[in-house]
Amino acid sequence: MKNKTLLIIGVFYVNFAFAQNADELNSQSKELLTKRDYEKALPILRKSAELGNAEAQYNLGYFLQNGVGIAKNENEAFEWYKISSQNGFNDGHYSMMMAYGTGIGTEISSEKAFEYALKCANNNDATCMWNVVNCYKQGLGITKDTNKMLEWATKLSLLENPENLNLSGNITSTRLSLAYMYRDADDVEKDYYKSYIWFLIYNEFKKDFSITQQNQIIEEIKTAESKITKKQLNSAKVDAEKIFGRKLTNSENLNKADF
């Protein structure tokens, strides 16, 4: 029994040592990559990937896909993305979504693309959530499902706006899309009050849009106000904050553009 215990401890130690080395090698490779020293970085990166570091597996896939510092090989890139995704790395999920969506290193499959988009979306990735919303809305890779579309659109809309302009734009665009959907009865029952509430939530970060677009939407908001009762107009901000989960801080700028 003592020898068996020692053996188990020994195996655990070796596995821990490999994991530690993989992480250390990944850190070393990233330091070298920031200096664009691909000749030294890529062998270290590959070793880290082979030892199981999920970030290194994704990074190796990226360099193979784009042929940066290494011969371009989209098929091998796909395999490393797949392994990275299997190890739970979100960028691995994202790359598998893109691979199946565009046929990079594999066949095009909208069903597989959606499968990985959903994995990525479950990590609150705004781009993947945006894709999941559109898949459920249009029936791409999955059966069209208005309830699921609204569920994911709401989740995306309630995220904090990040500094990344593209990601922030996806969030703000979804808020505006919900306002239009309820206004125009697009896959949902027409509801001017819900539409107005989403206009108020969109307004929080409307600077993601151009001044021209903002001014056009301001006119649409004025029209929306004319479609609801005075009582609804007075309660809209409170109800919007309940949905939003936090205070609206830009209400005073509802009728003017943000820079």
Rank of each mutant, 00 (worst) to 15 (best):
E115F: 13
D125S: 07
T143R: 11
T106P: 01
Y180H: 14
S109R: 03
A113L: 04
L178Q: 04
W130Y: 06
M129W: 06
A121K: 06
G105F: 06
S195Q: 08
N166P: 04
Y116T: 00
S168I: 05
A126P: 14
A117S: 15
G141C: 04
G139N: 14
L150E: 14
K194A: 04
L159C: 01
C135E: 14
N166R: 07
G141T: 08
L165K: 13
I108N: 02
I171D: 05
P162Q: 01
S110H: 02
T127Y: 15
T154K: 09
Y182V: 04
S110T: 14
V188G: 08
S173R: 06
E151Q: 13
M149T: 09
G103Q: 07
N134P: 11
R183C: 10
T127Q: 10
L140P: 00
S168M: 06
L156K: 12
K112H: 08
Y182E: 08
M129I: 05
I171V: 02
S168K: 02
N131F: 15
S109F: 03
N147V: 14
M181V: 09
E115W: 09
T127H: 11
L156G: 06
T154F: 02
D145M: 10
G139M: 08
A113Q: 12
K155D: 07
L176Y: 07
Y192S: 06
D191S: 00
N131I: 12
A179I: 15
K112Q: 10
T143E: 11
D184L: 06
E107R: 00
N134E: 14
Q138W: 08
N134R: 12
C120N: 10
L158V: 02
W152F: 13
Y180S: 11
A113E: 08
M129R: 03
C120M: 04
D187N: 06
L167G: 00
L176N: 11
N166L: 01
S195H: 08
G105C: 10
L178S: 09
D145E: 12
L159G: 03
L178A: 03
D186F: 02
I104D: 02
V133T: 13
N131L: 14
C120I: 06
I171H: 04
E111L: 14
L158P: 01
T127E: 15
Y136T: 15
N147E: 09
K194F: 05
G139V: 15
K112P: 11
I171N: 01
S195V: 08
